[in-house]
Amino acid sequence: MRFPAPLHPGVLIKRYKRFLADVELDTGETVTAHCPNPGSMLGLKDPGSRCWLSHTDDPKRKLKYTLEVLEADNTLVGINTNRPNRLAEDAIRAGAIPALSGYDSLRREVKYGVNSRIDLLLESAARPVCYVEVKNCHLMRTPGLTEFPDSVTSRGAKHLGELSEMVRQGHRAVQLFVVQRNDCEVLSPADDLDPVYAQALRDASTAGVEVIAWACDITLEGIEIVREIEVKL
């Protein structure tokens, strides 16, 4: 996935009210940007951090700038949680994720379970339907280890229950973590931040839900899923 236009560099002043961020652009202008990330962004919201924003001229948008990339731990980190579904779709269509290759069709946001929508539904006449739930991940507190979630997510635990039910019905189900940074080798659940989700992830794995994680290459030109990393539950 390439950004449609060059990103605007700046320095983060503060992130607040979950979806807002004040940024001083390198031009000297201070702007309020949309921060498309419902999590805590633990370790990624320090004032003074270098950051990069996309811009739109859409007259319907109140906030013209969107926070896309931050610099942390001497690497670039993607913080836009709207990106991973597109990144996963592109990678699957390109055959870049072997575990999810070989399907005839891919559909997004398909209703299933109890008032839920699956991120990606893979279908083939010769194989069981595959339900793929995509989660964004960018928390790193220990070098080389990325953890999920960075705050409590009851919705995430619900999704794991839905995936487990699909397995019980004879389908295939996959929890795919898209890690928007390239300095991690292992993914684990963050037991101290959300023990309920951590246990739900382990229970889902025991029930037959496949848990995989892929790291991204982040540049100021675009983001691409590039390599699988180990999952330790």
Rank of each mutant, 00 (worst) to 15 (best):
E228V: 01
V114N: 13
V196P: 00
A200P: 07
A200Q: 11
V178M: 02
H159Y: 07
L12R: 03
L220P: 07
A88R: 10
D90F: 01
T81C: 06
T219W: 10
Q175V: 01
Y131W: 14
C216G: 08
E68V: 05
H55R: 15
T81K: 12
T56K: 07
L139K: 06
D57L: 13
R181L: 04
E109P: 00
W214S: 05
M41D: 01
V69T: 09
W52S: 12
S188R: 14
S49I: 02
A72P: 03
E165S: 14
K135G: 01
V110N: 04
V114M: 13
V134K: 05
A99R: 05
D26C: 13
V134T: 06
R86S: 12
L70C: 11
G43I: 02
Q175Y: 10
G156L: 01
A5I: 02
T219K: 08
Y65N: 03
K111P: 09
V196F: 13
P38D: 09
K14M: 05
T30Y: 08
V226P: 07
D26I: 12
K135Q: 08
K45Y: 06
D217W: 01
R108S: 14
I118Q: 08
E109H: 00
A213P: 03
L63C: 06
P36A: 14
L12Q: 01
H171Y: 14
W52D: 14
Q169F: 14
D73C: 13
D46H: 14
S154E: 10
Q175A: 14
Y65I: 05
K158P: 02
P98V: 00
P6N: 15
R227D: 12
L176Y: 03
I118A: 08
Y197E: 04
L63Q: 09
V11T: 15
R50K: 14
R181C: 02
L7V: 12
L201E: 04
L176Q: 02
T142L: 02
G161V: 02
L70W: 02
N80Q: 05
H55D: 01
N82I: 05
V226M: 09
S188C: 08
L160M: 15
K17Q: 15
V167M: 07
P59T: 11
P4E: 15
D46L: 13
Q199G: 01
L87V: 04
T153P: 03
G95M: 04
L120S: 10
A72L: 04
A33D: 12
P149I: 02
D58Q: 05
T142G: 03
A173R: 06
L87C: 06
V11K: 15
P143I: 02
I118N: 08
D203K: 06
E224M: 03
E68I: 00
D150L: 09
S40A: 15
K111R: 13
L63G: 05
D119M: 09
H171M: 12
I212C: 00
K232E: 05
A125S: 11
L120V: 05
E224S: 13
L53C: 14
V69N: 10
F3L: 11
S116N: 15
P195M: 08
G208D: 06
R168V: 08
